Computed example of a mutant assay.
Amino acid sequence: MKLRIPDADVLWDTLPDARRHERTLHVQPGDLDDLNHVNNTVYLAWCEQVAREHALRLGMGTDALSALGAVPVARQHVITYHRPAVLGDAVRVRTALTLHAGVRSVRAYALDRVNPADPEGGVRLAECQTEWVWVDPVTGRPKRAPETVTERFGFSDAVFSR
């Protein structure tokens, strides 16, 4: 079941820069399945890649988070596919941190084809949401993210939703 959180692009313009990140990728031969479409697992890999880039941009990569005593692990991914991407397509992947409360955070993603002939804003290929649970990197037990993490990712209060 899809979480009832807006997709990344719905909130995009209202979120602080620290809560959003985007990258444009180009479909390569190794991304394709037997039908010559981007394989479904590639969409998820792209989402995770852009999420990691976002964390690294904020100085919150895995090593930094481990040193602070809490790392996020995926609890659930939900992907809705609308159209296939094919070899050579330019795909913009946007991620936005949409919720952070207690030991959970949610990232939303919007994946759009942005080829030169596409309409302004692109053509929606897929949406994804990932629910992350913060855990202690030593024990693996759920743990609230440290305040430094919360602040660095653009949240300022104890309970966050938007």
Rank of each mutant, 00 (worst) to 15 (best):
E120Y: 14
R94H: 03
N115C: 13
V138N: 12
E151P: 03
A110V: 10
L56W: 11
A96E: 00
P116K: 13
P142C: 10
D9L: 10
T95Y: 00
T14P: 01
A117R: 15
K2N: 02
S161L: 11
V42R: 14
T95G: 08
N115D: 09
A101S: 06
A108S: 10
R104N: 00
L99H: 07
R152S: 11
V27M: 00
L58I: 11
W134N: 05
V27H: 08
P116T: 11
Q76M: 05
N40W: 07
R94G: 12
N39A: 14
V10Y: 14
V78P: 06
V10T: 13
G102L: 03
P29A: 15
P142F: 03
L125C: 06
G122K: 15
R152T: 13
H21Q: 09
L44H: 07
V86P: 00
V78L: 05
R94A: 07
V91N: 03
A117C: 07
R141A: 12
T139K: 12
V38H: 05
A67F: 01
V71C: 06
G59V: 02
C128A: 12
A126G: 03
G102A: 04
L11I: 08
G69N: 05
H37G: 05
W134T: 02
I5S: 03
P84A: 07
D136P: 05
L25W: 10
T150V: 14
T80N: 15
K2M: 02
C47I: 02
V78C: 02
W46H: 12
P84H: 10
V91K: 08
Q28I: 08
A117M: 10
L111T: 11
A145F: 08
D34I: 01
L111V: 09
V50E: 10
H21P: 04
L15G: 01
Q28K: 05
D63Q: 12
Y109E: 03
L15N: 01
E120H: 15
E53P: 08
R104V: 10
F153C: 06
D63S: 11
A117E: 08
Y109D: 04
A85C: 11
R92C: 00
R107N: 06
R107Y: 12
L44G: 04
R107G: 09
A74V: 15
L11Q: 00
Q49P: 01
D33I: 13
D13I: 13
R104K: 01
R124W: 13
V135W: 12
V71F: 13
L65T: 06
L68A: 07
A51I: 11
T150N: 02
A96R: 02
V71N: 07
W46L: 11
E22F: 03
E151G: 10
V114G: 10
G102Y: 01
T95D: 01
R113D: 03
T139P: 09
I5A: 04
H82M: 14
R23P: 03
L11M: 04
F160Y: 05
R141T: 08
A110C: 11
V93G: 02
F153S: 02
P119L: 10
Y43K: 06
M60G: 04
R124E: 08
T24H: 05
W132V: 04
Y109H: 01
Q129C: 04
